[in-house]
């Protein structure tokens, strides 16, 4: 077949696309495809909003019965819930499909990723984007904004920086949780519920008043899966309240370190999972 005649060759036409173009192309197509099933997309958006709303309602019901829990009032907890749910929903939006590895394995999608010249984990991450989670993030954002305005917070540079650092780190911690779960699921093809205990249990934990936890819970969700430091501890710091045993408020500035720890844990888990897939099962 002859080459089509190009009158004025555009040099850009002969340049290979950038490395990032591949991820961009996939993500853009995911967004287009979700929006093309309109009715469905709106149901999803509604359902997602309701999830966030009902989770907030569950917290509210407890505070409806008592004035304060573990030293925090409902106003205070709005701040905790806001940080936790906003960062969790955004992590879910970008990484939410990573903990559904069994689906990828069954459909053979993973084998196809191996045939492409990009790192497999990056392909898995960028293969989908859950736009429907935007509405849930809105609930988190709303709660955060109300929480920030109803509480007495001194808006020093330090506190503003702390809030920003916390939101980013919390997003990273929750994202890493999903990658960790994805790695584990290579071993437990039917055991997704086990990882849910920590991923979704972790989200539930992140919105809680960690001072009411027993010591094992503080170890599990304070340090191993560092949920308490993603929202509760920074919120205490912003509110100028003292931290409970095991969770002093100076830890609030250490959330980036916890994010690094969680990502290291996640990447290690993913690597083990991939090794198992390539080495142990077919």
């Amino acid at each position: 077949m002859a080459d089509p005649v190009v009158p004025t060759p555009d040099p850009a036409d002969r340049m290979p696309p950038s490395r990032l173009a591949a991820y961009g192309a996939v993500l853009a197509s995911r967004i287009r495809s979700q929006r093309s099933y309109r009715a469905n997309f709106y149901t999803d958006l509604g359902a997602s909003f309701l999830i966030g709303f009902i989770e907030l309602a569950e917290v509210w019901i407890l505070f409806h019965n008592v004035h304060a829990l573990g030293g925090l009032t409902f106003r205070n907890i709005l701040l905790v819930f806001g940080i936790a749910d906003l960062s969790f929903s955004i992590a879910q939006m970008f990484f939410g499909h990573v903990d559904r590895m069994p689906t990828f394995l069954r459909a053979g999608t993973l084998d196809v990723f191996y045939l492409r010249p990009q790192p497999v984990l990056l392909q898995v991450i960028t293969s989908e984007i859950g736009l429907r989670r935007l509405t849930r993030a809105l609930v988190g954002l709303g709660s955060l904004v109300i929480g920030l305005s109803l509480n007495e917070i001194r808006w020093t540079v330090g506190n503003i920086a702390l809030l920003a650092v916390t939101l980013v780190s919390a997003f990273l911690v929750h994202s890493a949780m999903l990658v960790w779960a994805g790695g584990v699921q290579f071993f437990l093809v039917s055991g997704a519920e086990m990882t849910n205990a920590f991923v979704y249990g972790g989200r539930y934990a992140a919105t809680q008043v960690a001072s009411v936890w027993s010591t094992p819970l503080k170890v599990l969700f304070g340090f191993i899966f560092p949920m308490a430091v993603t929202a509760y501890v920074p919120a205490l710091r912003l509110l100028g309240l003292p931290g409970p045993m095991w969770l002093p408020t100076w830890l609030a500035w250490w959330t980036p370190a916890f994010a690094v720890w969680m990502w290291a844990f996640a990447l290690w888990s993913w690597r083990q999972g991939i090794r198992h897939y390539q080495g142990g099962g077919g």
Binding site: L188, S190, G191, E193, M194, A197, V212
Partner: peptide
Amino acid sequence: LGGLVANATFGFLKVAML
């Protein structure tokens, strides 16, 4: 087993709050 781990983890969190 996975389900049991999940049940227990959530259970302890519920216990703490309730």
